[in-house]
C-alpha cells in the first residue's frame, strides 16, 4: 500500500470515538458488547476492524453511526465527527439526514439488504427520494457512472433484480447504494466473506480505487487478516468488545504486540512460508455471556497469562509509534 501515515498523536480530522460502551440486553442482564472503546478513525485512509465473530467489530461500526438497535443500547461515550459534532447526540430526522450525507454502509450479505421484488434502479430512486433527492435522472446517472466505474454493465445492473446478480456484483451494487448519497465515510461489513478469491480481489481493488478517487474515509470490517493486510493503512484489533491493539498495518503485521494479534497472524493459512509455523488459535471466540467480567478478557486463550491478568483489566499503552496495545505482558515502547 502507499506510504505509511505520517506520525502524529492527534489528528484533527479523525472521527474520534471516546469511552464508547454498548450494552446488549440478554437473559443474564445487560452485558457489554463494547467496553470503553477509544479509537481514532483517521480521515482519508482505510482502517480495518479485525476480530472473530462476536468480537464487537460490527457493533463498533454501528455505534459509530449511532444505529444501535434494541436489544442493544449505547450506554455512554462520544463519537466526534469533525464539523458535525457528537453523532451520538443526533436523533430522528437529523440523524437520518446525517446518515445519508456522512455514512455509507455496505452490509455483510448485500443480497439480504436488497428488496428481492424490486429492480436495483428503482430501489436506488427510492433511497434518493427518501433523502430528498428528487432528481431521479441525476441519481441514475450517478449510479450508472459508479456501476461503469466498477466494471459492470450499468444498464443491465440497474434493471436487474438482486437474484440475477452474482455475489461479487451484489457486493458492488451494495457499494453503489452506500455512495449514491455522496457519503464521506464508507463502511464495509465483511465485504468479501461470501466471495471466492477472484471476486474478492476484484471487489477489494474497486474499493481501493473508489476510496482514492472519491477521497473517502473507509472502514473495512473483517475477520480475515489477509483483507486487512491488502487494504488497510491502519488496523484495529478487536477482542470481546475491546480494542486490544491498534496501529499502522505493516507495523502491526511485522511486530504484533498483543498475543491475540500474534495468534491471529499465525493462524492464517498462507501461500508462502513453512507449514509448521502456522498454529491454530486455541479455544473458541467468546460470546457476550462468556466474557469474563473482571481481568483481561483474553486470558483463557493467552500464552502469556500471568496472575495479574485474572484481576486487572490491562490499560492501553502506546505502541507502534502512534498506536496502542492493551496487555499486561507487553511493555510500552515509549
Amino acid at each position: 500500500m502507499r506510504a505509511i501515515e505520517p506520525r502524529g498523536r492527534t489528528d484533527a480530522s479523525a472521527i474520534r470515538i471516546r469511552d464508547l460502551t454498548v450494552l446488549y440486553h440478554t437473559e443474564r442482564g445487560m452485558l457489554p458488547a463494547l467496553k470503553d472503546v477509544n479509537l481514532d478513525v483517521r480521515s482519508g485512509i482505510i482502517t480495518g476492524f479485525i476480530g472473530e465473530s462476536g468480537s464487537g467489530k460490527t457493533t463498533l461500526a454501528m455505534a459509530m453511526m449511532n444505529t444501535i438497535r434494541l436489544p442493544g443500547r449505547i450506554q455512554r461515550g462520544r463519537v466526534e465527527v469533525p464539523n458535525v459534532g457528537n453523532v451520538l447526540e443526533f436523533q430522528g430526522e437529523r440523524l437520518r439526514r446525517l446518515h445519508g450525507q456522512m455514512f455509507g454502509f455496505v452490509f455483510q450479505a448485500s443480497s439480504n439488504s436488497l428488496n428481492p421484488l424490486k429492480r436495483i434502479g428503482s430501489q436506488l430512486l427510492d433511497l434518493g427520494r427518501s433523502h430528498g433527492l428528487t432528481n431521479g435522472r441525476q441519481i441514475l446517472a450517478d449510479a450508472k457512472a459508479l456501476a461503469h466505474r466498477m466494471g459492470m454493465d450499468a444498464d443491465r445492473v440497474l434493471t436487474a433484480y438482486q437474484h440475477e446478480l452474482s455475489g461479487g456484483m451484489r457486493q458492488r451494487v451494495g457499494i453503489i447504494f452506500a455512495l449514491i448519497l455522496r457519503a464521506q465515510v464508507l463502511i464495509l461489513d465483511e465485504p468479501t466473506t461470501a466471495l471466492d478469491m477472484l471476486s474478492q480481489q476484484a471487489v477489494l481493488e474497486i474499493v481501493r480505487e473508489i476510496h482514492v478517487e472519491q477521497g473517502l474515509t473507509t472502514v473495512i470490517i473483517t475477520h480475515d487478516m489477509g483483507v486487512v493486510a491488502e487494504m488497510a493503512q491502519r488496523v484495529a484489533v478487536l477482542y470481546a468488545g475491546r480494542v486490544v491493539e491498534e496501529g499502522p498495518t505493516p507495523e502491526v503485521l511485522r511486530e504484533p504486540r498483543h498475543p491475540y494479534t500474534r495468534g491471529l497472524l499465525h493462524a492464517i493459512p498462507r501461500i508462502t512460508g513453512s507449514l509448521e509455523e502456522a498454529q491454530p488459535l486455541s479455544g473458541s471466540p467468546p460470546d457476550l455471556t462468556t466474557v469474563p467480567s473482571q481481568g483481561c478478557v483474553f486470558r483463557d486463550r493467552c500464552p502469556l497469562r500471568m496472575p495479574v491478568c485474572d484481576r486487572v483489566e490491562p490499560e492501553t499503552r502506546s505502541a507502534h509509534g502512534d498506536g496502542v496495545v492493551a496487555c499486561h505482558g507487553v511493555t510500552a515502547d515509549d
Binding site: M197, L198, Q200, Q201, A202, L204, E230, P250, E251, L253
Partner: peptide, 19 residues
Amino acid sequence: AVPVLRGLERPGEDRYIPR
C-alpha cells in the same frame, strides 16, 4: 488473488487479477 500480507510479504512480480 491470494491476499498479500504487506509488511511480511511482497507481491509477486507478475501478479495480476482479471477484472
